[in-house]
Write a protein that binds this DNA or RNA. Structure first.
Length: 269
DNA sequence: AAATGAACCTGTTTGC
DNA sequence: TGCAAACAGGTTCATT
């Protein structure tokens, strides 16, 4: 479900509820999600310093320990008053000082969590091979050109590879390619430097605009307070098969690497 | 090496 | 109406 803008929206929603709060109790309602859950009882009595993000991972800072969480496709966090009844698909609940509790809900259970040492988190297998943050300086046309060189596979699934750049999932890959005017089936190694420059700009712009809109809600995504994200109203191509593009062509849907791709055959070459 | 497909799991939508 | 198939924001592993 959540791509970078949605995870960042969740992070911003969590931060004021988690920073400087102590974990007063931990309840796990099942032993595993996608993987076995860590023993979160070690967090009992600990102070959370804040919540950061790397790619699509949330990192809860407990000084020497990080609680790392990936939302998978349908994971959601909510902060609610203590004593709130159990919610559907609720798997974990942390009671916090100050009278609130943090709930994790996940219908499909593709999400996962881990407890790792803060001093070596970047060497953890979940992080060691991740590409640069798309909104940071390390994601630039030089990086993209170097990685695209010689690649014969289609650019759209290539763009979704977290080893190239983190945070770009199915929605924003489609939207960024539309903005850059690049056909999703074009070989990654056969795009001019100028057009790769447009693509880096498009990735940054679409992600930044989506964060400003609170992410995109299709069906499952919700912010920590339960409200939806509004960027879905601004999709140019995603989910719009058969609708007319502003150029007049009809938007198409194809399947690449098992995922739906939406594009405009008039605007994207 | 690189690209595709299957797997993980449940809920919702679509089509016959 | 009922049932089955298709589809859904992600990642990893196995197979060509």
């Amino acid at each position: 479900m959540p791509e970078l803008p949605e995870v960042e929206t969740v992070r911003r929603g969590l931060f004021p509820h988690m920073a400087d709060r102590r974990i007063e109790s931990v309840q796990c309602f099942r032993a595993d999600l996608r993987f076995a859950l860590p023993d979160m009882s070690v967090l009992h009595g600990r102070l959370c310093r804040g919540v950061t993000r790397r790619g699509k991972y949330l990192l809860f800072d407990f000084d020497d320990l990080l609680l790392v969480w990936h939302l998978g496709m349908t994971g959601r966090f909510h902060v609610l008053p203590a004593g709130t009844p159990m919610q559907s698909h609720e798997h974990v609940r942390l009671s916090l000082s100050g009278g609130e509790c943090l709930l994790y809900r996940d219908a499909r259970r593709f999400g996962y969590a881990g407890l790792i040492r803060s001093d070596s988190w970047q060497n953890h297998p979940w992080f060691a091979r991740l590409g640069p943050e798309p909104l940071g300086d390390d994601f630039n046309v030089g990086h993209l050109a170097a990685r695209c060189k010689g690649k014969r596979g289609p650019v759209k699934p290539f763009l979704m590879n977290a080893q190239l750049v983190v945070g770009v999932g199915n929605i924003y890959a489609c939207e960024a390619l539309f903005r850059a005017g690049i056909h999703p089936q074009r070989a990654a190694g056969r795009i001019s430097g100028q057009r790769l420059g447009r693509l880096t700009d498009a990735v940054r712009e679409v992600l930044a605009e989506a964060i400003d809109s609170g992410g995109s809600t299709i069906s499952d995504f919700a912010r920590v307070d339960g409200s939806p994200g509004y960027f879905s109203h601004q999709f140019a191509v995603y989910g719009r098969e058969g609708e007319a593009c502003r150029c007049g062509e009809s938007i198409r849907r194809i399947v690449q690497a098992g995922r739906s791709t939406f594009y405009c055959p008039g605007c994207q070459r």
